[in-house]
Amino acid sequence: MESNTSRIAVIYATAQGSTRDIAEFIATDLGSRGAEVELTDVEHAPDLSRFRAIVFGSAVHDMDFLPAATTFLHTHREALHNTDVWMFSVGLGPALRGPIGRRVGRIVPRKIAALVASVAPCDYRAFAGHYERAGISLKARTMYRLLGGGRYGDLRDWGAIRTWSSMIAQALGLPQPQSTTIAP
């Protein structure tokens, strides 16, 4: 039987690609530290029993994980309880600025909080994604600005993502990266 000592699954559900990009970054970082990493979207997730750890991420729409992510977490709850899991979400909340926006941005939506609690991961983080103005209604753009949003484009904080990935690596006892040029 093969050892899963340094096998990590990075599984994601994405709508427009931001979550996939973050998952790819994390997988590359963990792989550069000597781990054997399998990166896959949630629809093609591997047998979880083969892995020492799982990093799971989903885009946030309507204050909830994507339906495929929610289904996956419910279906695999028992397997997830038998391994180390780290979870992340990608949405607008972390990109909000100003006194109201920062406060609102730190709130974990109720449905997501319930899913996170049901899995009991080692850690959960929310990251900002890529947000384009095109195709967004005037009402949504106005709400975004009132909450301290206002910037559009790539709002991801790659430094925070790198720090979180390093925290996962440290928790798993992985060495420092063999290459220092992991670019988003």
Rank of each mutant, 00 (worst) to 15 (best):
Q176G: 08
S179L: 05
A95L: 07
L172F: 09
P99W: 13
V104M: 14
T70I: 12
Q178C: 04
R103A: 15
G149K: 11
D84W: 14
D64W: 01
A68M: 10
P109R: 13
E78Y: 03
A113W: 04
G31H: 03
G31W: 01
I54L: 15
S179Y: 02
G93S: 11
I182Q: 07
M1E: 07
S3N: 03
F127V: 12
M63F: 14
L73Q: 12
A53S: 14
F56W: 09
E78W: 00
P109C: 10
W164L: 01
H76A: 01
D64V: 04
S32P: 01
P177Q: 02
I107W: 08
M87W: 04
G150S: 09
Q176R: 09
F127D: 13
G135Q: 06
E2M: 11
E24N: 11
D21M: 07
I11K: 05
V116F: 07
R97C: 08
S137N: 05
F127P: 13
Y152E: 06
A113R: 15
L39F: 10
A120W: 04
Y144C: 01
W86V: 06
A59S: 15
G129V: 08
F88T: 06
Q176D: 10
A128F: 02
P177F: 02
T142H: 07
L66A: 07
G148H: 10
H61A: 12
R50K: 15
L146S: 04
D123N: 11
W164Y: 07
T70K: 13
A79N: 11
T14R: 07
A169P: 03
E132Q: 15
I136W: 09
F25R: 09
E43L: 14
V60E: 08
L174Y: 05
A35Q: 06
S137L: 06
L73W: 10
L96S: 06
V60F: 12
I100A: 15
S137Q: 06
R141A: 11
V10I: 02
A183C: 08
A13F: 06
G98Y: 08
R145S: 05
M63K: 15
R125A: 05
P175E: 01
S58P: 09
I11D: 02
A9W: 03
S137P: 04
Y152S: 03
G129E: 07
T163Q: 13
F88L: 07
E43C: 09
I54M: 14
S166K: 02
R103D: 07
L66N: 07
T83G: 05
A53W: 09
A120T: 14
R133P: 00
V104C: 10
A113V: 05
I182R: 03
A15T: 12
L96P: 06
S137T: 14
E2L: 10
L73Y: 09
E36N: 13
H76G: 00
H44Y: 06
Q16Y: 13
G153A: 06
D84L: 15
D84E: 15
D41G: 09
T181H: 14
A183H: 10
A13R: 08
V42M: 08
V10H: 02
A128R: 04
S179E: 07
G148E: 08
G153P: 02
H61W: 12
E24Q: 14
A68H: 08
A117T: 12
S165P: 01
V108L: 15
H44D: 12
T83P: 05
R162Q: 12
G135S: 05
C122S: 11
F56H: 12
A79Y: 06
G31S: 10
V104S: 09
I11C: 03
